[in-house]
Simulated scan of single mutants.
Amino acid sequence: MADSMNPPLSYEASATTTHPLVATTLPSEVKSCLKNSRFLHLATCDGLTPHISLMSYTYLPSTPFDSYPTIIMTTNNSSRKTNHLLTNPRVSLLVHDWVSHRPPTRAPSGGEREGSPPPAATRSSLASLLLNLNTSALSSISTTITGTARFLEPGSEEEEWCKKQHLENNTFEEEMGTFGQQQQPGQRRPSISIDDDVRVVTVRVREGRIADWKGGVKDWQLVSEGDESPEPLVNGVRPA
């Protein structure tokens, strides 16, 4: 019998809806995750073969065109994910902020690999500081978001507005240049480019699942004011 203080990974019975949370606002953990992370994983499928892409994105609590929280992404018009989305717009997104308070693991006795984080990292003063920070200040969860991707009409007011927001959100100060060369202090540089043939994709944030690093899960669903009987989620997904 597993120690209740140290549950095994993936200990939750998560094949069905687990610890459902239905509310008119996003869970605070999801908000924090979406605000802190710089990238997300976008999973698409053409009906046969799944495909995952690492994406820059922009999260907005709402837009002038949609009252729901929205995620904005861009994709090349001839990319595999674009072809997938044109045939199957159902997507799954995975977001976490790349910071974990997972304690270091011991290296196996065989010596073929190091622990995680490796000893050299734990000896670093910066790494030690991060490892010893109050864990409440660090994210320990990831969230999946399930939904339907929507291509914005090229040249439309909504597309132009979302392009501007996405470009501003992915412009950073003092970015590292080529071969690690530091940019001039105060200089701002976009980390993405949006050409004329790039398609803008949005995903409405309505439902998903929170998972912590110990394997606990919680399904969440965002509903509009006055919606008292939302459709139930199954494994973080609304049944078709």
Results as ranks from 00 to 15, higher is better:
Arg80Leu: 00
Trp220Glu: 10
Ser56Lys: 15
Leu233Glu: 14
Arg189Lys: 13
Glu157Thr: 08
Ser78Ala: 09
Ala121Arg: 11
Pro104Gln: 15
Phe172Met: 14
Arg209Phe: 00
Glu207Phe: 04
Thr143Pro: 05
Thr87Leu: 02
Ser116Gln: 13
Gly177Trp: 02
Gly180Ala: 06
Gln183Arg: 12
Ser10Thr: 05
Arg189Tyr: 14
Glu158Asn: 04
His101Tyr: 02
Gly208Arg: 01
Pro8Trp: 03
Ser156Lys: 01
Ser100Tyr: 06
Lys214Tyr: 07
Pro8Thr: 05
Ser10Met: 01
Gln221Asn: 09
Thr87Tyr: 01
Pro7Glu: 13
Pro8Ser: 13
Val203Gln: 12
Pro69Cys: 04
Val223Pro: 08
Gly226Asp: 11
Arg113Lys: 11
Ala107Gly: 05
Lys164Ala: 13
Thr49Ser: 07
Gln165Val: 04
Val203Asp: 08
Gln183Phe: 06
Gln182Met: 10
Asn83Tyr: 01
Tyr68Val: 00
Leu21His: 15
Ser62Gln: 10
Gly177Cys: 03
Leu42Pro: 06
Glu12Lys: 13
Leu42Lys: 12
Asn235Val: 02
Leu133Tyr: 09
Leu40Pro: 02
Thr24Cys: 10
Asp97Asn: 14
His41Met: 01
Gln184Arg: 05
Ile145Arg: 14
Gln187His: 06
Asn36Gly: 07
Lys35Leu: 06
Asp219Ala: 04
Val22His: 09
Ala240His: 11
Ser56Met: 07
Thr171Leu: 11
Thr122Asn: 11
Ser100Val: 02
Asp197Arg: 07
Glu114Gly: 00
Gly110Asn: 12
Glu168His: 08
Thr202Gly: 09
Gln187Arg: 05
Ala120Tyr: 11
Leu60Lys: 08
Val198Glu: 14
Ser53Asn: 15
Ser224Glu: 13
Ser224Asn: 09
Asp227His: 13
Leu9Gln: 12
Val91Tyr: 05
Gly115Lys: 04
Glu168Gly: 11
Thr146Ser: 12
Leu85Met: 09
Ala120Lys: 10
Ser124Glu: 12
Thr18Ile: 00
Leu152Ile: 03
Val30His: 09
Thr18Pro: 00
Asn235Thr: 01
Ser139Phe: 04
Met176Ser: 14
Val201Arg: 06
Ala137Trp: 14
Pro154Leu: 10
Asp46Ala: 00
Gln221Pro: 00
Trp161His: 13
Leu86Gly: 10
Phe172Thr: 15
Pro185Cys: 08
Leu129His: 14
Leu222Val: 00
Gln187Trp: 02
Ala43Gln: 15
Gly180Thr: 05
Asn76Leu: 04
Ala2Pro: 15
Tyr11Gln: 10
Glu160Cys: 05
Cys45Ala: 05
Thr17Ala: 08
Pro61Thr: 06
Ile192Tyr: 14
Val22Ala: 07
Leu138Gln: 15
Pro61His: 06
His19Tyr: 03
Leu130Tyr: 06
Met5Lys: 11
His19Trp: 03
Val217Gln: 14
Glu157Asn: 12
Pro119Val: 00
Arg209Cys: 04
Ile210Val: 09
Leu26Trp: 04
His96Tyr: 08
Thr74Leu: 01
Ala23Trp: 06
Gln165Ala: 12
